[in-house]
Simulated scan of single mutants.
Amino acid sequence: MDLEVLIIAQDGFEPIYAKPGDAGCDLRSTHQLVISAGERMLVPTGVKIAMPDGYVGLVHPRSGLAAKHGITVLNSPGTVDAGYRGEVMVTLLNTSSEDFAIEIGDRIAQLLFQKVERARFVAVGELPESSRGESGFGSSGRS
Rank of each mutant, 00 (worst) to 15 (best):
I102T: 09
I71R: 03
F13I: 04
L3K: 09
P20E: 15
I7H: 00
L6K: 14
D81Q: 05
E14F: 07
Q32A: 15
E87A: 14
S96R: 05
A18N: 09
G78Y: 03
T72I: 15
G57I: 06
T30E: 07
S36C: 02
R132I: 02
K19A: 14
E117H: 08
L111R: 00
L6I: 02
P128Q: 03
I8N: 12
R107Q: 13
L58Y: 09
N94P: 02
R132G: 01
F100N: 07
S76M: 09
A109L: 07
R28Y: 04
R85A: 04
M51W: 04
S63Y: 09
E103L: 06
A9E: 14
P52C: 08
D26V: 09
A123D: 11
P77A: 11
I104H: 12
H69C: 08
A18W: 00
R107N: 09
F137D: 02
M1N: 11
H60V: 04
G105I: 13
A123W: 00
G138M: 07
G136Y: 08
E4S: 13
I108N: 11
H60W: 14
R118Q: 10
E14N: 10
I8G: 01
E14H: 13
M41D: 08
F137E: 06
G86D: 12
L3A: 10
P44S: 10
D22I: 01
